[in-house]
Computed example of a mutant assay.
Amino acid sequence: MRYLVAALSIFVASQAFADTKTQKIEELLRAQGLVDTWTQQLERGKEYNKQVAKQIMGQMTTKLAPNENFQKRFDAASDKFIESIASPWTADDMVAVWAKFYGPGFTEAELDQLIAFYSSPLAQKEIQVGRAALEKFTLHFQQLNQPLIEKATNQYMQDLQLVAKECNCAK
């Protein structure tokens, strides 16, 4: 019985240690601005998915004039698509996974030092400047990539239409 109590005590203590370490990693990630960045990325992903759905819908319905009933069905299909590709993870989920992989590399004392550094005025300035630069950097490449995506999507739609026409397999 004593061994069971000792093992249980060690387990509880290790869980408390892990929870404290995870909390410190979360505090560090917040100080670094990564939690906000991940949250923004998830939101941008949702917006991007909506744009993709709208673009595909436009291409599919360009030669159609659906009545109200069919327009609602098209909209429902679009909503279903957007929902099906939405990320099921939150920024908090990402923190937990990051802590799992990142945590073993640092002691609690080292995490305390990192938190102190990233909470300093200079580090906070670097984070703000870096985030602003990253946003512009990302937008730059998104804009460069957009024509490529549009061209590839158009070609894909044409390829599908050609196959469908050649197939002559409509029900």
Rank of each mutant, 00 (worst) to 15 (best):
residue 5 V to I: 07
residue 8 L to S: 09
residue 11 F to L: 07
residue 14 S to D: 03
residue 18 A to D: 01
residue 21 K to E: 03
residue 23 Q to I: 06
residue 30 R to A: 04
residue 36 D to T: 06
residue 36 D to F: 02
residue 37 T to W: 12
residue 40 Q to K: 08
residue 44 R to Y: 14
residue 47 E to F: 10
residue 50 K to C: 12
residue 53 A to W: 06
residue 58 G to P: 00
residue 59 Q to K: 13
residue 61 T to I: 12
residue 64 L to V: 03
residue 66 P to V: 04
residue 66 P to C: 13
residue 67 N to I: 05
residue 72 K to R: 06
residue 73 R to G: 03
residue 76 A to C: 05
residue 76 A to E: 11
residue 76 A to G: 15
residue 77 A to H: 03
residue 80 K to H: 12
residue 81 F to G: 03
residue 82 I to S: 06
residue 82 I to A: 07
residue 82 I to N: 05
residue 83 E to K: 15
residue 83 E to L: 15
residue 84 S to W: 10
residue 87 S to G: 08
residue 88 P to F: 06
residue 91 A to H: 04
residue 91 A to L: 04
residue 91 A to C: 02
residue 96 A to Y: 03
residue 97 V to A: 13
residue 97 V to D: 12
residue 101 F to I: 09
residue 103 G to Q: 02
residue 105 G to N: 09
residue 106 F to H: 06
residue 111 L to C: 03
residue 111 L to W: 00
residue 114 L to K: 10
residue 120 S to F: 04
residue 125 K to C: 04
residue 126 E to F: 12
residue 127 I to M: 12
residue 127 I to D: 02
residue 128 Q to I: 06
residue 128 Q to C: 15
residue 131 R to D: 14
residue 142 Q to L: 11
residue 145 N to S: 11
residue 149 I to R: 12
residue 153 T to W: 06
residue 154 N to W: 14
residue 156 Y to H: 09
residue 156 Y to A: 07
residue 158 Q to I: 10
residue 159 D to L: 14
residue 162 L to Q: 14
residue 162 L to F: 12
residue 163 V to G: 05
residue 163 V to W: 15
residue 166 E to Q: 10
